[in-house]
Each structure stands twice: as structure tokens, then as C-alpha cells.
Design a protein around this nucleic acid. Structure first.
Lengths: 398, 398
DNA sequence: CTGACTTTGTGCCGACACTAAACAAAATAC
DNA sequence: GTATTTTGTTTAGTGTCGGCACAAAGTCAG
């Protein structure tokens, strides 16, 4: 027969995540016949989502007829991704495969009115769409806050000066409508926590590819967040509050935390804690994350800085070990300052985690630095791509 | 057309878990037409897995033609379930729907040789099969230890006097073969941690029905275990070591634990801890769990016992709150002594969890006592039923 | 260079699971 | 008793996928 609609979504996901470079591996990954895989690929090509390169394949080394190459469409549809952070916003058009097609940033103090920021960000995105003339199939937003399901409210936008409980998803949808993005409905336009989205992006396109149970931990500009991807799907808990790991206790005699406890990961292993441990006064010029990363990179030889790094690594390792004992992931990825701490002394962190993990096997889990630029932004795009990956026809027929 | 093979497994699962009492709801739950649901039900009946009761339905109250009732087959195939615990073993034949058809127990000290115990237990199960003449489609085993995937080794059979790392799955399969159970292959015969299997059973047939993210915590005879069911599937981690929650710290100045830390849940909220806090000397006659449960039931009026219960509830609540912050479940079920503690003072436990949870929403999660007899045994059976639920034809054709 | 072999892509046919639509059956409502 | 509602069944038809044969495009051996 002609087409294969049932396998369309899975096939697109395989090409999207780079796990199906040719029709041959598409065949085996889908577990279908070559005929079906060929029909599916043909239909995806007809939809303008992928391209097939059937030219002489520049050889491959193995014998047999060379495969045609499958690519994500060069000039196919995109989604609009936006990220709000303490220092401003960034928007991008993201194609399949997590490829950033165009990007735009807005800097400066984030006003206390989220609607305002979102309107600015979405407006910049709409401008990108006009410039590039691309078709937009959805939109995703990353915010530095837990986002409550199912309504999409930002519960703790601590360093945005936004009101707790701000209905960011509704505001985002409103901004999309106001900006004249075509086809905005409830089924388009998604919101998520930035660390969650980082995890999603890393799982599909970065250092987390192939992991089954992926744990991510990242320091933001302030505080610490976590995320978990299970079997390729983000686990954000029944109401979107899972993996709020900032308040794991890693130092019982530590500094008081706004949560009422002491020695939480949030106040013991974030950029501010690092600057404090190194005896530096945080300056106002650049972000805390930037200052901490610069210090770690430029003055690691300084004994005080080195000691501060060691201290943070130990605290972070304690927190990660606790998560390993509960979640038993098969890979861990670190972002933000934690990525730099890992790179500064990988062995120390791995040793702490292994030492504090209960069972040798789970303690030996690989710990990697995140491997993607703008991973939260790409993750927000993944959120928007998801309906397309679930069923390309439904979305494209709108 | 005639039959509906693709929907066969999902349909059986719906009847199995009691979510499809009639063909009408089967139709809506599967999202297919009445014709398909009818064909699927007919085929399941022909396979001897369910029965359809088309007699005058004793009315239902609503108008329209009354539905025929769907039941799990009265005399259909069974699976063999076995549970090893500190005081002996228990085996059962379990039909679809989690119905225990026949059971047998073996008491006395568990010898240090797991092969011996498993041979005894499986032998008793084979005897049950002979007596009842039922067809056996699989076997499941519950042990009080983390079970490492993919090989099925018992990593910490602490109170069984078994060697750590004992290959229980292989031994179980060997015992099944030796006992002459027909059709034993690798695809039959599964092993799991008892608390994990309790969670699975409660999710399908007990207090956890309908929960999306279900967290279970249970004291065994010694120590504390946890389990998580996500979207209907057990999350046991990448190597089967997830939710080993016994070593969450709930009392920084607490008693030393064999893991090297202090104040772990394992030593602060298990039956022995309760007896100790109540100032009772554990006797040798019955199990610690039994002694603790008896004390809690019979002498709750005693101020010392009451104070001990309050103390344990507070410690347990602290541990659960930590898990809630990480996992954000939508329901929590407690087993073993924790079930009795919850029943003794539900409000106290709920208040502690809510108070120590970071976000009000996740703190309000329902906490329920487990609602099933022999839930680990039923869970072991679920493990064995799973291949049948995944594809009834493949299993029955063997 | 030629022929054997290996692997990949495609066209054709049939199997079959499922939908759609009409009809039949069994209850309640008036 | 008749209309309405809901459920179950029969029929025909549709679309997806597997099986198979064949073609295409390379490597390997001589």
C-alpha cells in the first residue's frame, strides 16, 4: 500500500532525535517491514517534514546497497520557543531536530508584570516569523519556576519579581493571540520549568541521548532545580511539582533557607553560595551565575577558590547521592554552575556520589556535563513539537 | 469483521483491573466502536479468559437496554505467586482480577540457602496446581530485598540470612523447572521486591486504583521500603534499585544505621524502633511486625505507647514529605506497621506531611492505608500476568 | 572486468483489524 | 401501547501493514 499513518509519529520522532539516519535503521527501529518504512518516509517527505537524499551516498564502508540519507527538512515548519530568565528573555524559532533557525534576545530588568514580558518576547518571536516566512506549528515557554499542572501557573518565580501563582500559560497564550500567531489554541503553547526543559532537550539532542532514566540537576542564577526524564517522557509529577530538589538537606548545620529549614541545596550549592564560600562579594554588574562561572574558570588555582569548589562539590554530591538512592537513574546531567563544577573536578564529584550511594551499582552512574547550547530554549521547543511527534497529520491539517 | 487482536491486551487489562464491568464501558475505555468491543470480548471469552453474563441483569436503574456483565473467567488459567519473608513463605494460585484461588504457607526459620526455600515454595505451588487442575501461565516471586535488574539478584536480603547478590530469579526459574511446571522459559517467572509488588497490586486492585503517580511506603518486619507506580507501570529504576527509601535521614541525631549514617528511616520508623520507643523488649515468639502491631492496637491508650506512636508518625511524615517534594505523587499508600500508624492517628501524619512539604498543593496528597490482603503476593502474580495482558495470544498459544 | 553476494528500496497482493451504518434487542418513559 | 434510550450484532467497506518478488546499487573475489 501507500502510506503508514500509525507509524508516522514514531518515525518522525526517530528522525527528529537523530536515531534514524537512513530508511534501513528506520525499518529496524520501528520494527516494521522495509516497505512500510519506505511508505512512512515518503509520506513524511510529502508533508515537508523530512528530506531524503538519494544521491550517491559518498560511501559508507560496509557492503551492500548504500542507504539514502534521511534529514529533517531544511526549510520545514518551526515552533516558537521562549525563555524568561533573571536577566531578560530569549526567543527562537526551532526546527525539527532541535535546530535553532533564528534567535533574538531582550535584556534588562524583568518587570514585575509577566504579561508585559511575555508580550515583548512573543512580539520578538512574531517578528522572527515574519522575517523568515516560516510556518509556525506551536509555541513553548521556559520559566525559572515550578509550573503547576494542569493550569500552568508559576508557583515560585523567586528571582523574577513575579507574583507567585502567576498564570503564565494563560498569559503566554494570550500573548500569542495578540501577536497574531496563526492557529493559537489550547493545544498549542506550552509552559514548563527551565530545568525540566533542559532535561528534555538534553535527552533528545544532547548528552542524555539513549538514557532510559535521566536525572538532571542544575543551578540557575539562584537556587537549584532538578528534572527527570523516564522512558523519553518528562516526569513532572501529578501537579508539575516533582524534582523540586532545592530543599534537600545537604548540611544540617548550614545556612537558614527561606523554606524554614537549614542547609538546603538551594542555599548551599548555588552561585551565591560559591561566591560566599570563596570569600567574594557578589557584584551587581553581571549575573551571579556568570560571576561564579568566571571565578571558577579564571581563579581555580587560588586555594580559596579551589576550597570553595571542593566544598560545593561535596554538598552537591550529597544531594545527588540522595536522589540516586531514590530514583536510580542510569545517567545524570549537570547544568548551570554545576556543569562547571563537574568539569573542574569530575573525579571528586563522582567519588562523593559513589561513596554516599547505598548500592555500588547505582553509585557508578555516569555523571556528565550538559552538552547543548540554550538547552532550556530547545526544551521549550520540544514541548511545542510534541503534538506533531504524537500525530503529524492532525497538527499539519489545521 | 470478526475479531480485534490489537485491542485484546488492553481490553483484558480493563476487565482484569475491574475498569470494564460491561461491554459498553469497554467500548468507551478502549475508544473503539461497539462492534470492535463486542468482537474483542467474544474472543477473550473464546480464549477462556473472561465470561459474559447475558442474563436479565437484575436491572441497573438507568434506562436503555441493560448491559451484559463482563467477569474474569471463574475457572480460567492462573499464575503461581510466591512470597518469601522472614517467617517463612506463602504461595498462591492467583486468577485474573487478583483473585487468590488457592494458597499454602510454609513456616519456620528460612534456611540460609535460597535454593532450598524456593524449592519448597515452588513445590507447594506445584501441589496446588495438581490439586486444582488449573492451567498455569506464569510465576512471580516477591522477596524482601532490592532485586537488581536485569539479572534478578537479591542485593540486600537483610533479614533472610541469604547471601547478598543471590541470583533469586535464576534460582526461581530452576525451582520451577525442577517442580515440573510446564512451559518454563525466561519469559515466564519474574522476581521483585515485596514493597514494589505491594504497590503494583494496590494500584491495580486496591487503594491505589486510578492513581497516576502512586507512592507506597511500607515497613517490613525490619526496615522500610518504598515503591512508585507511574502511569500504571512500576518504576524500579534503571537497575531495580529505585525507591530504596530506608536511608532517608529523618533524625540527624538519631541511632546509627548499618549504612554508616545516623537516624535513617530504616532504624527510626520500623517495628523495632516502635517497640524501643515504647520501652518494650522485643520477644522471640512472634515477628517484630506482629508484636508492634499488637502493641499499637491493644495498648494505644497507654501514654508511653501513644508517645512512641506519635514519634514514629513524625519521623515517617518527615520521610514521606521528602519523597513528596521529589516525586509529587497524587496518592500515597502505607503498608506494614505504617498502615497501622496511619489508622491510629491519620490527622497527625497528614499534618506532618503537609507541613513539611514545600508547596501546599503537593502537601495535600491523599494518604491511605493499603486495602488488600496479601498484596505482595498479588503483586507477584501481577508480574506473571503482565505478558498475558501485553498479548494474550502469544502466551496462550504456547 | 565480470559474476557472486549483500544490502537497500519498491511494487503488488492479501490478511485483517477496525470503522461505519443499519438493524435488532431490551429496558424505561409517557 | 408507543416512543425513546441504550446496548449488542450483522454487514459491508476501508486502510494499514506483512509477505514476497524483484530491481537497484554497492562490495568482494578472481
Amino acid at each position: 500500500m501507500e502510506r503508514g499513518r500509525g507509524a508516522l509519529g514514531p518515525a518522525l520522532e526517530l528522525v527528529h532525535t537523530g536515531r534514524a539516519p537512513t530508511r534501513a535503521v528506520l525499518t529496524s527501529e520501528l520494527g516494521v517491514t522495509r516497505a512500510t518504512a519506505g511508505a512512512v518516509a515518503a509520506e513524511l517527505e510529502a508533508l515537508g517534514l523530512i528530506t531524503v537524499d538519494s544521491r550517491p551516498t559518498a560511501s559508507a564502508g560496509s557492503q551492500g546497497r548504500p542507504s539514502h540519507r534521511l534529514f529533517v527538512a531544511e526549510r520545514g515548519p518551526v515552533v516558537l520557543a521562549a525563555q524568561i530568565h533573571a536577566d531578560g528573555f530569549r526567543v527562537a524559532l526551532v526546527a525539527l531536530g532541535g535546530r535553532i533557525v533564528a534567535t533574538s534576545t531582550g535584556c534588562g530588568t524583568i518587570p514585575a508584570d509577566p504579561a508585559h514580558v511575555l508580550a515583548d518576547a512573543v512580539g520578538a518571536g512574531a517578528e522572527l516569523l515574519r522575517e523568515t516566512g516560516r510556518r509556525c506549528l506551536g509555541a513553548g515557554l521556559a520559566v525559572p519556576s515550578a509550573v503547576a499542572e494542569p493550569d500552568g501557573e508559576a508557583l515560585n518565580p523567586l528571582h523574577l519579581a513575579w507574583p507567585a501563582g502567576a498564570p503564565v500559560r494563560a498569559l503566554f497564550l494570550r500573548a500569542l493571540t495578540d501577536a497574531g500567531i496563526p492557529g493559537v489554541t489550547d493545544a498549542i503553547g506550552f509552559t514548563g520549568n527551565d530545568v525540566n526543559l533542559m532535561a528534555l532537550a538534553e535527552h533528545r539532542h544532547g548528552a542524555g541521548r539513549g538514557a532510559r532514566d535521566l536525572l538532571c540537576v542544575a543551578s540557575g542564577h539562584r537556587g537549584v532545580g532538578g528534572a527527570l526524564v523516564l522512558d523519553g517522557r518528562l516526569h513532572s509529577g501529578s501537579s508539575g511539582l516533582a524534582l523540586e530538589v532545592g530543599h534537600l538537606t545537604v548540611n544540617p548545620e548550614g545556612a537558614p533557607c527561606h523554606c524554614g529549614s537549614r542547609g538546603c541545596l538551594d542555599v548551599e550549592a548555588d552561585p551565591l553560595a560559591f561566591l560566599g564560600a570563596a570569600g567574594r562579594e557578589p557584584g551587581p554588574e553581571v549575573s551571579l551565575l556568570q560571576q561564579a562561572a568566571d571565578l571558577l574558570r579564571d581563579e581555580y588555582a587560588d586555594p580559596g577558590v579551589r576550597a570553595a569548589a571542593d566544598l560545593l562539590i561535596d554538598r552537591l554530591g550529597l544531594g545527588i547521592a540522595g536522589l540516586v538512592n531514590i530514583l536510580n537513574p542510569d545517567r545524570i546531567i549537570l547544568g548551570g554552575l554545576h556543569r562547571d563544577l563537574l568539569k573542574a573536578d569530575p573525579e571528586r564529584l563522582r567519588a562523593v556520589v559513589a561513596d554516599r550511594s547505598l548500592w555500588g551499582r547505582s553509585g557508578g552512574v555516569p555523571i556528565l556535563p550538559c552538552g547543548l547550547d540554550h538547552n532550556s530554549l530547545v526544551g521549550a521547543a520540544e514541548l511545542a513539537w510534541q503534538p506533531v511527534l504524537d500525530d503529524p497529520l492532525v497538527v499539519l491539517d489545521r
